Computed example of a mutant assay.
Amino acid sequence: MKKVTKATIAAVAAGALLLGGAGTIARWQAQQTIDAGTVETGHLNLTTNGEGSWQDISNPEAPEPFDPATQQLVPGDVVAFSQTATIDAEGKNIA
Rank of each mutant, 00 (worst) to 15 (best):
Q71P: 06
L17V: 14
I87Y: 10
T86Y: 07
H43R: 11
A10D: 00
I9P: 02
K92A: 15
G91S: 07
A13I: 12
A22G: 11
I34Y: 11
L44H: 08
S82C: 04
D77F: 08
A26V: 10
T41D: 07
S82P: 03
V74W: 07
E90D: 13
T38Q: 15
V79W: 06
P60N: 03
K92V: 13
A22D: 09
Q83E: 05
K3W: 00
K3M: 00
T48W: 13
P63D: 02
G50H: 06
A22W: 11
A30K: 11
Q71H: 05
P60M: 03
K3F: 00
I87P: 01
T47N: 12
Q83M: 11
S53L: 08
P63E: 01
F66I: 04
N49A: 06
A69L: 10
I9H: 08
T47P: 00
Q29D: 14
D77G: 03
K2H: 05
T8I: 09
D67H: 10
G42L: 05
G20L: 02
T48V: 10
D56A: 03
F66R: 01
N45V: 10
T70W: 05
A13T: 12
S58H: 04
L17Y: 12
A95W: 08
N49D: 09
W54V: 03
F81S: 05
D56H: 03
G20W: 04
A16H: 05
G76V: 02
T84W: 09
N49M: 08
Q32N: 14
P75R: 10
Q31Y: 10
D67N: 15
G15S: 14
A13W: 07
P60L: 02
Q71D: 13
E90H: 12
I25N: 05
R27N: 15
A80C: 10
T38G: 06
R27P: 01
L46T: 13
G76C: 01
G50W: 05
A11K: 09
S58F: 03
P60G: 02
I9A: 15
L73V: 13
G37V: 02
D35H: 03
Q71Y: 08
N93T: 14
A10L: 14
A85D: 05
P63W: 02
I57F: 02
A62E: 15
A89H: 08
A89E: 06
G37Q: 07
A14V: 14
A85P: 05
T47L: 09
K6Q: 07
F66L: 07
A30R: 09
N59L: 06
L18V: 14
G23Y: 13
G50Q: 04
I34N: 03
K92Y: 14
V12D: 01
T33N: 15
N93E: 11
K92F: 12
G23R: 10
G91W: 10
N93G: 09
A22V: 12
L19H: 07
E61G: 04
A26P: 01
T48L: 12
A89P: 03
M1F: 00
